[in-house]
Design a protein around this nucleic acid. Structure first.
Lengths: 247, 247
DNA sequence: GGAAGATTCCGCACACTGTACGGATCTCAG
DNA sequence: CTGAGATCCGTACAGTGTGCGGAATCTTCC
């Protein structure tokens, strides 16, 4: 009877004796991030995560209330990778914002699974990293001459564009990763289906046809920058308008 | 591809007696949409969906290869609610695009769960409704004077903004719906947590404080329109630039 | 008629999920 | 030494997507 239950703590060579707690939040979040990056969103289960930490699944619940909470933590962790803009950038606010936007896009593309988690994470606006980022962008726009309300507007607009376009790119990348094929090959395979969908749509057909031979990676950066330029252009105009109103 | 069988929606009396196939794609997709709208994304399971159609769970697999495919179909169905812009709009291309964008946002807010499914749906660009929408927007931008490539750019930019901002609004609404509380009440409850997150961020604190008393619903429409105006302004500038280059 | 083949429906089973619960083991304060 | 509290985890439960095999029904051809 007594030998029935194995005191598993002893059987864990690296980890036995509890001179220190074996698990902690930061560690769990980091492992979850690893797992997500390596295997995608479907592979994140409490059991697998526990295994990766040489711990039981339910042990995690000592440090994390629920899986959703864990995901929110991971998402904020990812936001931590975004390079926030600084006020007083010698290249001007536009360059600062553009750099931040590029960093944000790169971060999302580095973690494509984040798109499928965007709904779960709900209001992650309260995480420390997201807060830091928002504050920094607000500061830059204020410095550029916008009121706080207008700066908020501007931040929301820019972030919406960046997240929107990065999400569609990331969704594409994630589908690729799931299928394990190269982009060219996959497009080739997709083509018949696309062709059908596109039968009555000459413009779409022309676009698809034009893209067939080209490397699709190359002009995505350009497309992002061009669109961002549009948004910033609009903001600049608004800024000028506000100054005009002030005078 | 589309099941061209006549909708056998009429009387299904007992459940047995199969004078006509009892299930079909369109019906399943419609029921899934209903379920999602009524109960949110967590409530969509094959078993529950089957029950709602008075069918077994695995029966659905005769008409739908996989749950992901079903979701893609539902997403395209939703896109079908978006009012596509028409060329030759008497109010000009800008108004046409703005109307379409507003319709798109309204559609997303009517189905907030779509955010949590945006990752699954992956490349839904091939659905008939999404295709129709893309083609229509391309046509409008072409009419405005853009090349096909530039029009594609423009469409992507506008859609990214609209989806991005609507997604963040929808995520908020979905969290609200999950908690079943009124927006004001929820914000009240959230406040302490927000206050902590915002301790070292004066601009964020000012924004939160300013929003405390106000009705948050009212200026969201305005915020959307303002941001969209920015984007369109930028596109207009680009259009002018292109014309200048041509001359 | 009746037989052969398709199509549709579904019960069962399997592997897997998030997490509630209660007990085991540890550390530390008194 | 005693208790309190933190931490870890085995077990269990309700629920998931879906593969499989069989049953019922419809269609087609003789």
């Amino acid at each position: 009877m007594a030998g029935d239950k194995v005191p598993s703590v002893w059987m864990r060579p690296g980890r036995q004796g509890r001179e220190q707690p074996a698990l902690n939040r930061a560690q769990i979040v980091a492992a979850a991030l690893d797992l997500l990056d390596a295997q995608g969103v479907d592979a994140l289960s409490m059991r697998k995560l526990g295994a990766r930490l040489q711990a039981g699944a339910t042990s995690l619940y000592t440090h994390v209330a629920t899986k959703s909470e864990l995901i929110e933590l991971v998402v904020d962790e990812v936001y931590g990778e975004v390079e926030a803009p600084r006020t007083g950038d010698p290249d001007g606010w536009r360059a600062a914002v553009a750099r931040c936007a590029a960093s944000m896009r790169a971060t999302i593309l580095r973690h494509p699974w984040i798109v499928s988690v965007l709904g779960e994470a709900g209001v992650a606006y309260l995480g420390p990293n997201m807060s830091r980022l928002s504050e920094a962008m607000l500061a830059v726009f204020e410095e550029a001459g916008l009121s706080l309300e207008a700066a908020d507007q501007a931040v929301n607009t820019v972030v919406a564009y960046v997240v929107g376009i990065s999400a569609s790119e990331a969704a594409w990348l994630a589908t690729l990763a799931r299928s394990g094929r190269s982009e060219r090959e996959w497009a080739e395979r997709l083509w018949p289906s696309a062709e059908h969908a596109v039968r009555d749509h000459p413009r779409l057909r022309a676009l698809y046809a034009a893209r067939r031979g080209r490397d699709p990676r190359g002009d995505r950066d350009g497309a992002f920058a061009t669109g961002l330029d549009c948004v910033l252009q609009g903001l600049t105009a608004r800024l000028a308008g506000q100054e005009a109103n002030r005078v």
